[in-house]
Amino acid sequence: MLLQTADQPFNDPAFLFEPKIDGHRLILSRSQRETRMWTADRTECTRQYPELYPVPIDGDVVLDGQVACHVPENSRTCTHLVKERLQLKKREKIAAHSFHNPVHYVIWDILYLNGRDLRTLPLVKRRSILEKVLAENDRFALVTQVEGNGEELYRSVAEQSMEGIVAKRKDSLYVSRRSSDWLKICARGS
């Protein structure tokens, strides 16, 4: 599900709003205890993030979210650290990074669960399922959502010099293309 761009933040009770997380898009799949991961351009990156292999959900699942690295000094996310991590080739360096500067997976959607395709359910139903099955921990977390008030969230993320926000129509189905049901609103100067 790809984002279209909106020019300005807005308020609308038909939408949920989320902060746009610095990092890169990650589709994570676990099937029969094997975990695999792909970037938005369908490049497999499973070996890059061994700390994400133990998925805190029972059964087979496909998740959509953002992989992020936190700067140790201030706990803010940093795109540069994730890009650096994605480029590592040597197993020893990947292992060292996963220990000293582990990534975090911020999840915003669940696409499959135990053989059931959830993409045809409305976003709010998929989110409800995700909240019930995910056991959040220091590696896996749900993205924060604000209902209806995108302008306030936008001001908050802009004050924190974050990238922007994402607006998602509550009744949106998950489609494998660009859709006006999901909109990105970039913070000025990002």
Rank of each mutant, 00 (worst) to 15 (best):
I185L: 06
R25V: 02
L118A: 03
D12S: 06
F15T: 01
S179L: 01
I129V: 03
T77C: 13
V82T: 13
A187D: 11
E51R: 07
Q8S: 09
K125C: 03
E34C: 10
A14E: 15
S156G: 09
E51M: 08
I94G: 04
V157G: 05
L134F: 15
K89M: 06
A6W: 05
L111N: 04
K83R: 14
R116P: 07
I110T: 00
A68L: 05
L121S: 06
V106M: 06
M162L: 08
S190T: 15
H97K: 08
P9N: 14
P19T: 09
L16R: 04
L86T: 10
H70K: 11
D7I: 09
W182Y: 10
E159G: 03
K184F: 03
A96V: 13
H70C: 13
V82S: 06
L88N: 12
V62Y: 05
F15C: 00
W108H: 09
L118F: 00
R42L: 10
I129M: 07
E51S: 12
H100M: 13
D64N: 07
R116H: 05
A40I: 12
S29L: 09
L118E: 03
M1R: 00
F140H: 09
V61T: 10
I57L: 03
H104S: 10
T46C: 07
R30S: 04
V55D: 01
V61P: 12
L2T: 02
E34L: 13
I110Y: 05
I21C: 04
T5L: 08
R188M: 05
N137W: 13
F140L: 02
F140Q: 06
K132I: 06
L111G: 04
Y53G: 01
L130Q: 03
I107M: 04
K83D: 07
V106T: 08
R178M: 07
V143T: 13
R178K: 13
A187E: 12
V175I: 08
R116T: 15
I94P: 07
D171P: 02
C45K: 03
N74E: 14
S180E: 08
F17G: 02
P13G: 07
N11M: 08
N137M: 13
H80W: 11
G59V: 00
L134T: 10
S180D: 10
Q48H: 10
Q8T: 15
